[in-house]
Amino acid sequence: MIHTKTHDPNITVIRPGAERLTAVNAKAFKDEVTDLINGGATQLIVDFKDVSFLDSSGLGALVGVLKKIGHRGELSISGLSSDVQQMFRICRMDRVFTVYDDVNSAVQSMAESQ
């Protein structure tokens, strides 16, 4: 389901490929991102620009991916809608993930930190 695009140096931008990341597709999302990580990707950005809704299962999958990367790499988030932003705030996820307004700022910041 996910769409990926690689930016130099070795930054992978992931678009979930669904307007809603929920119990219906959270596992598929996590499995596919886990495959990327197992394939060696360590610098990941999940761009939520086209995602309007994230439920508790979607959030669980996202945190699962973060745990999978662990200290081996980095996972940033970009393009959160205001509703998803509100959910991130209530769950303090804004303290767990590095969140950027848009994917370009996320790529730039990740590239500079390498």
């Binding site: 959030l59 209530i90 767990v96």
Partner: peptide
Amino acid sequence: QAGYPSAFYVDRYGSAMSVGDGGFP
């Protein structure tokens, strides 16, 4: 509050306010 939505406190005059500003699940 641990990730659960903030509650609403409504006083005797019907004025509501949000209770809680978030917390980790």
